[in-house]
Design a protein around this nucleic acid. Sequence first.
DNA 1: TTCCTTGCAAACGATTTGCATTGGA
DNA 2: TCCAATGCAAATCGTTTGCAAGGAA
Lengths: 151, 151
Amino acid sequence: MQPTGPTTEVHELVKRRLAENGIRYTSGRRSVVTAIQMASGPRSTAELSQETTDDLPISSLYRTLAIFENAGILKRDHGPHGLARYELAEWLTGHHHHVVCIACGAIEDIEVSDKAESELHAIVSTLASLAGYRVLDHILEVEGVCEACDD
Amino acid sequence: MQPTGPTTEVHELVKRRLAENGIRYTSGRRSVVTAIQMASGPRSTAELSQETTDDLPISSLYRTLAIFENAGILKRDHGPHGLARYELAEWLTGHHHHVVCIACGAIEDIEVSDKAESELHAIVSTLASLAGYRVLDHILEVEGVCEACDD
DNA sequence: TTCCTTGCAAACGATTTGCATTGGA
DNA sequence: TCCAATGCAAATCGTTTGCAAGGAA
């Protein structure tokens, strides 16, 4: 799940990526990356606001997230209530999918076996060609009930 | 894609479902269902506001959408910018997936063959059991470029 | 010095809600 | 009559932005 190696390595990669665009990797920005790295799945801005060590003002948090998204460091999606959620881009974490607990809202990263992944690709490309689309990516999300929430 | 038959049939099913909960199927509500039925994929509230025949005030539109969602008639998700999008629940349309054009934002329903669907189920259940989840549903979304937007 | 970054407060836009009115069974 | 449905305006809430101050190269 972390083909890029240990924690510090991600910081290095992020720093380099930002530097290429003349963007500084400040301590506030570092703490956002750390917070996201600690999580086992996408994090909402509210969560990040809390989990961020220094108490980063919310406007700075949003600005940081926007910068990271533009730089291809974070990927944004939206949770069931429409709240933005962020996770590290796949070149930093590896390709994965999500399982979501509809009871407690937990969301976890899951890796798929190579065999399953190639089957998925086959399905996806068939599906896309039917609609005349050129495939760029796919998202598979499993909705279910996690162990803790299940009776 | 419409195992429930022609247009009027959906209205009947919706009406019945609402009636079971003591909720009326008024003309404003009918026009929302009609607008969603016309679409080939999920619709945003802004789109629905326009596509709705009578000019339904936004507050009523939102209230209608909330009622439909609670009654299991509509399913909500969120587009790339976090805007809410609605589509008929699968018991009204049949199980399907989406292809999304990242260039123009178009989104279309796509059906998967029975064979592909059963492969998908296998992948999904393996994946979920790894995380200790009981599977309830799955979402497969293909991101790509539609014919019109492709060079 | 020159830009990038930060913080605060004000602005925004989508969605929700209070309340008085209307309308259907 | 009675309760659901409606319409308007005001309120919320997440997110964005303007602007002046702070900081690194």
